[in-house]
Computed example of a mutant assay.
Amino acid sequence: MPIPRLAEIPADVLALIETQTGTVLTYETVGGGLNSEIAARVHSANTTVFVKGLRSDHRRVWTQQREADINPSVRHLAPAVLWHVQESGWDLLGFEDIDGPHADYAPGSPDLPLVADAMARLSSITAPDVVMRSMPDRVKAHTDFPELFAGTTLLHSDWFPSNVLVAGGRAVLVDWAWASRGAAWIDPALWVVWLIKSGHTLEEAEQWATKVPAWNNAPPAAVTAFAKATVSVWAEIAEGEKDEWVLDMLQAARTWHDSR
């Protein structure tokens, strides 16, 4: 479930940020994203940083350490982590600021080749030796064949459009909270569902997936099993949910699975 976002940065958090940036002059909270209590672009006299954070006792605070641990492996695809502060009941990450809009997944969008290129580069990265869940473990409650999704590749796995920024002629991947270890074709498989939800036909969506070489080597039976598991995952998320985008994702997952 989305984490409620604070509209203002609390005074004690500003004080922690200032230990890293100097006096904060202004800041703007950011609306996109679902995994942080605090998400803001913070300006001081000498720097602008993007700050995200959770209270130290939040049940998802582990995602902060996950991002910090993974960042050295994805510096060419993601904003650099500049600092990590764990004090006074808060866990805060300061990132290199990337000024760019969220990716547009709609048919004909000029962002699509950039996203496919970033995904292709990511698919060549071996998951670092840090604490990270595997994709078989994540979906074992939704499939009888979790072993089909095993692999050593670093997966982003959360292709919500707000997690992809477009800047400087490239796609920059943010919010690595749900990074996992698994088969290299899984990220393009997840993207297929987002593309269908964004207005692509099934054929168009899978054609974009072919731009990621790992997709073209995926065993068909494994992809079909993953499509079925994806329907189950979104059905669980959508249970009692009224947000239209969640229901649209469930329908997109069903469209993909039914085609197989």
Rank of each mutant, 00 (worst) to 15 (best):
H84Y: 11
N216P: 04
P146I: 00
S198P: 15
A78K: 01
L154D: 11
G108H: 03
K52W: 11
A40P: 06
D104I: 01
P213H: 04
M249H: 09
G182L: 05
R55F: 00
D158S: 05
V61T: 14
V130D: 09
T201I: 02
K140P: 01
K140I: 03
L92Y: 01
E8K: 11
L165D: 03
P219K: 09
S123K: 12
A118H: 07
R254A: 07
P146H: 09
V30M: 14
A127F: 03
R170N: 03
N35E: 14
S259F: 00
L82H: 06
L25N: 14
E67F: 04
E236N: 14
V30I: 15
A7V: 06
L14D: 03
L155M: 02
L247S: 08
D243M: 07
T201F: 01
A118N: 08
T224M: 12
G33C: 08
E147M: 10
A253M: 01
W245P: 11
W159Y: 07
G32Q: 15
V233E: 13
S109F: 06
I17E: 00
R55G: 01
T255L: 02
L112Q: 08
L173V: 06
I196F: 02
F50H: 11
K197L: 05
F50M: 05
A167W: 01
W185S: 12
R170S: 08
P128D: 09
L92C: 02
E236K: 15
E96N: 03
G94P: 03
W159V: 02
V174C: 05
D69Y: 06
W256I: 05
P128E: 09
G100Q: 06
A227Q: 15
A184L: 06
V231C: 09
L195F: 02
A7Q: 13
L25Y: 09
R41E: 12
P101L: 09
V85S: 00
W83N: 10
H156N: 11
E28G: 09
D187Y: 01
S124N: 12
L6W: 05
W208D: 04
A120G: 11
G31R: 13
K211G: 12
G32N: 12
R138K: 12
W159N: 04
L155F: 04
R133V: 06
D158C: 04
T26C: 08
D57R: 02
D175E: 08
W215F: 11
D129I: 01
P4N: 05
Q65R: 14
S162V: 05
D144H: 12
L154R: 02
P4F: 06
L6R: 03
S180P: 03
W83T: 04
H102P: 13
F160R: 15
L14N: 03
V164M: 13
T153L: 07
H43P: 01
G89T: 00
R181V: 02
E206A: 10
V74Y: 14
L154C: 02
A78S: 08
N216Y: 03
W256R: 13
G240F: 09
R260K: 14
V130E: 10
F50E: 10
P101Y: 04
I9V: 09
D57A: 10
L77H: 02
